[in-house]
Amino acid sequence: MFRRFVAIVAFVALAAALTLVAWPQLLGLQRAPVLALAVSFRGAAAAAALAVAVVLTAVGLVLHRLRRGLGVLALLLVAFAAAEAGVLVVRGVGAPDVPVAQADDVTVLSWNTLGDSVPAQVVARAAAENRATVVALPETTEGRARQVADLLARQGSTYTVFSRSQQAGIPARSTSVLVSTALGRYREVTADGDTVGVPSVVLDPAGGQNAPRIVAVHTTAPYDLDPATWRSDLRWVAARCSERNVLIAGDFNATIDHLDGLGPAPGRLRTCRDAALATGNAAVGTWPTSMPALIGTPIDHVLATPNWRFTGFRVLSDDDAAGSDHRPVLARLRPAG
């Protein structure tokens, strides 16, 4: 009798734990230690749960005395995998069509280059092929960004380069942005502060033009036992969405789950909406490139205020061997109304 009671308690505890991993938002724990990492890899978690369920079922067929207990465990894991898969399907596993840009469109390319590991020619080619208006480059030095701009200038596209570094000599502690001169003049804003562990860049129009504020983001990864710095960085990013006309792009080190509670609805940072979620691509992983996209985690984003609508979004996987562990993301935006 006691053994049965202990088994029931164990099964209930496991069910509760799996529920929290599948939806930590139930208790507001999506940015809590451990759970913040556990919820990041929904595709991998679903695949692992199914694999373990198959093994438990096979063992139960051989060891008849354990069949009931192993069967219950297998059912719990299958339910967990189904829940994870359901979330991924709802968020979108890929609607990658990006329409041809129109005159007023803005195209944003964001690529964490892993400390200048991606050659300038590869970044320039991606920007040119997709007619990028804004190129956000976390973990990219000013020197590499200028190389990219020079290559694009030879093709007839001119960009202004902005860059910030928090530690000279370490490329991973830099963030750079290229802004097409077609958007007009821009200036860097420092009064808004910065993300803590790695830099972000805030740009405002400087020529009186009706153009968006541009924020290139890189937040600290939530690897610490208590990722307080990461949570602070996400709050800083959310605060940048207090303006009426904002585009934000970069490596958030956060999925849609982690953004819950920082805005009025899922995929919102205050008034900013997520391009991947709006276009049915929010389950497509951007990191790491060593994993298939549907197994990886979607932590690179493009967001915008409601005066913009997303006409397309795509996670670019053609350059998985270019040197970075991140896939670039591309979003095309059009003025709303």
Rank of each mutant, 00 (worst) to 15 (best):
T195D: 02
T311G: 06
A249N: 03
I8K: 05
T158V: 14
L63C: 10
R173S: 08
L203G: 08
P264C: 13
L152S: 14
T133L: 01
V93G: 11
N253F: 01
V98K: 03
W236M: 05
S117W: 02
F41Q: 11
A182T: 15
P205G: 01
R146H: 13
Y186S: 09
R4A: 15
L61W: 14
G337W: 07
L259W: 01
L262K: 02
R65E: 12
T175P: 01
F11C: 12
A136F: 02
A10P: 03
V123G: 09
V52A: 14
E84F: 00
A85W: 06
P99A: 14
A58W: 01
R91L: 07
V215W: 08
V93L: 09
I299A: 00
L27G: 03
V72K: 00
N245I: 05
P306K: 13
V78E: 02
I256N: 11
I8W: 08
V237F: 03
I295V: 15
L109T: 08
T175C: 08
F80H: 11
V34M: 13
R144H: 15
L316E: 03
D150N: 09
P306W: 11
V100I: 00
S163Q: 08
D319R: 07
G115L: 06
G208L: 04
R154Y: 06
I8V: 15
P328G: 08
N307I: 15
F313Q: 10
Y159V: 15
A17G: 10
P199V: 12
A22M: 08
V302Q: 02
S174P: 08
L109W: 09
T181E: 13
E84Q: 15
R231Q: 11
R42N: 11
A58M: 07
R68Q: 06
R67L: 11
G193T: 12
A172H: 06
W308A: 04
E129Y: 05
L63E: 12
L27W: 10
L247F: 02
